[in-house]
Design a protein around this nucleic acid. Structure first.
Lengths: 328, 328
DNA sequence: CACAAAATGTCTCACGTAAGACAATTTTGG
DNA sequence: CCAAAATTGTCTTACGTGAGACATTTTGTG
C-alpha cells in the first residue's frame, strides 16, 4: 500500500515535506507543493484514515443505525439526507440496517464503538416510541423518540401536517371529510387526528366524529378495514365528500372501492392522503394529492445535530408539504 | 478513550496479558482470562478498529457504492443482502449512495481508498450497462455490467425470469398474452422479450408479434403508453387474455384501464408483471401475480464475491420466483 | 559576496494494537 | 523441596500519520 514514504521517494523529497504538503503547512514553497501534489494525484494516494484516526484520536465517523429503515421506500430519504449532510461537513457515515429478533442492534453498536464513532443516529421506519441502550456514544433519535427526552430527537410534525392538509381540503370547499386513520397504537395516528379536528374547529366544523380507525396491525404489518367502513359510509344519508387516508397504500384500496361504487375520484369525491409514496402517488389514476413527510430534511437535521453535538436534548418537529394532484 | 492499557490497570495485570486474552492466545490461564474478559465486558471495551487496521494492514472493509439504489424500494434488498453476508463473514460494509451529476462517485471512491477497502461493490438501481473508473481496489458489479467483463458481475437472469413467468401463464391455459414491455433501451427489456418468445416457441405459439414497447424514458424517469395501446388491443378482434406488464408500477395503470373497460381482472383477463413491489403488489385489488427479482440473494452473492476475491471475472445470473396472487 | 529569510531536511515521539524475544514468577508433579 | 512446566511480565519493534525541535541547505536582497 502506498504511504507518504513512497510519495516522498517519488518526489525526491523528505517525508516531512510530504507531510507538510498534505497538511497544508504554509511553509512549503509553491513549486515543491505543486510537484508533490501532482505525484499524489498521479498515484492516486489517499492518506490512511486508519492511521489518521489513531494519530488524531478522532474518527469523523457518525453511525446511522436504521431500524428496518432500509426496508421501506419513503424512509430511505432519511438516509439520503443524513449522508448528504455528513459529506457536506466532511464526515463519514457508517450505515447499519438492524432488524428485530436478530442481535443486530448490539452488533452495530459494538462495531460503531470499535470505530470510535462520534455519534449514533438511531432511525426508525415510522414515527414511534423506542428505547435505546445507549453507551458512551451520544445518540440522536430520528423518526422516533424515547419516553423521556434524553437525546436530541427529530420527528415529523404529524399534527401540523394533518392540520395543513385538512385546512387545504376545507378551504377548497369540502366540508364533510372522513378520516380513515391508522391504527390508534401508531403515534402518528393520534397526532394527525388532533390536527384534523383542530383544523375543523378553526372553521367552526366539528370533525371529532369524522375520524375512524381504519387499519389494524396484523401478522404482515397492517391490514386495512376500508372495505368494511367505506361502502357503508358512502351509502349513508350524509356521505363524505372527501376521504382522508392514513397513508397512500390505504388509498390504493380506497380508489378501488370508490371506483367500484361508480364514483369518479376528484369529481364525485376527493381523496387525499399521507406519505407521497413515489412513484405510486403519481401513477395512481387520478394522481393522489398527499402530504409529503420531510424525511430528507429530517435526515439532514439529525446528522447536523449528531455532528454539532452537545445541545440541550429536545424534540425537533419538521414540517412537510402537500403534493397536489388531481384527486382533490 | 479506553485502551488495553486501561484494561490492564483495572485487571491488575500487564498489557501483554490483556493483549493475549483479546487475541485468544492459548497460553493464558483460564482464571486470568475470565477475569480480564469480565472487565472488558463491564467497561464495554472494544479494541480500536483504526489501530488494528494500521497494525494489521487489513481493513476488513468492503465498500458498497449504490448508484441511486437507495432511492428505490426493491433494490434496497441488494443492500440488505450484501450487509447480511458481510456480517456473517466478519466484515464491515461502508455504504455510499451516489447520484448522477454530483461528483459523489469520485468522493466515494476516495473515501474507500482512504479506508483501504478490500473491495468495492458497485450497484445500480436497475439492470444496466455501466462503466466504472476502477483504481487498484478490486470491483464487483451488482445489477449492472460493463461492456467487457473485467470484474465479477451479478445480475438477475431476466430472460429466464420472463421464460418462467410466460411458461406459468401458458400452462394455466392462457394463449393470447400481450407483453407490454419496458423501453427497448432498458437491458431487461430485450432479455425478457427473448424469454417470453422462447417460452412460446416451446409450446408452438408464436409470440414474436405479441411484444409491444409500452414505456418510454422521459424527464421524470419513465412514462407509460398503456392508455394508448391497451384499450385498442382489448377492443380488437382477437383481444389478449393476459397482460404481461414490464413492471408492477405499470400494472397500476393497466388495472385502472381494464377496470374502466368493465373487465374483471383475474377472471375476464389476467395480469402478471415483474418486480413484486411490496406491499404494492399485495394491496392491489386483486393481488398482482408478479415475478420477484432475486435482489437479496444478488446482494449476498456480490458480497461473497467481493470478500473471496480473485475469481475469474464472469457473469453470475440469479433466478427469481413467481409470487402468485389473484390476478392470474 | 554577505547575510537574513525561506525552505527543506533529520530525528524523535505519540496514537492503540499486535507480536516476538526473553526474563521473572507462580504452579504443578514427583 | 526441587525441577520442570505453565503463566505472567518487561521490553522492543512495527504499522502510517502528524507534529515539534532543530539543523542544514537554498533562495532572495542589498
Amino acid at each position: 500500500m502506498t504511504t507518504q514514504r513512497h510519495i516522498a521517494k517519488l518526489a525526491k523529497t523528505s517525508l516531512k515535506t510530504v507531510s507538510r504538503v498534505i497538511n497544508k503547512d504554509p511553509l512549503v514553497n509553491e513549486k515543491t507543493r505543486k510537484r508533490v501534489e501532482k505525484i499524489i494525484a498521479d498515484v492516486g494516494y489517499q492518506p490512511s484514515q486508519a492511521a489518521r484516526m489513531v494519530r488524531s484520536q478522532t474518527s469523523n465517523i457518525v453511525g446511522f443505525v436504521a431500524d428496518r429503515v432500509a426496508t421501506t421506500p419513503s424512509s430511505i430519504d432519511l438516509i439520503r439526507g443524513a449522508q448528504d449532510e455528513a459529506w457536506d461537513r466532511g464526515k463519514h457515515m457508517m450505515l447499519f440496517n438492524i432488524e428485530e429478533g436478530k442481535d443486530s442492534a448490539t452488533l452495530a453498536a459494538q462495531q460503531l464503538s470499535a470505530f470510535r464513532a462520534e455519534a449514533i443516529i438511531h432511525a426508525a421506519v415510522f414515527h414511534q416510541k423506542v428505547s435505546v441502550a445507549a453507551g458512551d456514544i451520544p445518540y440522536v433519535l430520528l423518526n422516533c423518540f424515547e419516553e423521556e427526552t434524553r437525546f436530541p430527537t427529530v420527528v415529523p410534525d404529524d399534527a401540523r401536517l394533518a392540520y395543513d392538509l385538512t385546512e387545504r381540503v376545507l378551504s377548497a370547499g369540502y366540508c364533510r371529510p372522513l378520516f380513515l386513520n391508522l391504527a390508534s397504537n401508531i403515534v402518528a395516528s393520534g397526532l394527525r387526528a388532533r390536527g384534523f379536528v383542530e383544523a375543523g374547529e378553526v372553521r367552526g366544523i366539528d370533525l371529532f366524529d369524522r375520524v375512524v380507525e381504519a387499519a389494524v396491525p396484523d401478522a404482515e404489518g397492517i391490514s386495512y378495514l376500508t372495505d368494511q367502513i367505506l361502502p357503508a359510509a358512502m351509502k349513508s344519508d350524509n356521505p363524505p365528500d372527501v376521504i382522508v387516508c392514513g397513508q397512500d397504500l390505504m388509498a390504493i384500496g380506497v380508489y378501488s372501492i370508490l371506483q367500484g361504487l361508480g364514483l369518479k375520484i376528484g369529481q364525485d369525491v376527493a381523496v387525499v392522503s399521507f406519505d407521497n409514496l413515489m412513484p405510486l402517488a403519481e401513477l395512481m389514476v387520478p394522481g393522489l394529492t398527499t402530504v409529503e413527510l420531510p424525511y430528507y430534511d429530517m435526515g439532514r437535521a439529525a446528522m447536523a445535530l449528531a455532528i454539532d453535538g452537545q445541545e440541550e436534548p429536545r424534540i425537533h418537529r419538521l414540517h412537510g408539504r402537500i403534493a397536489e394532484r388531481q384527486s382533490l
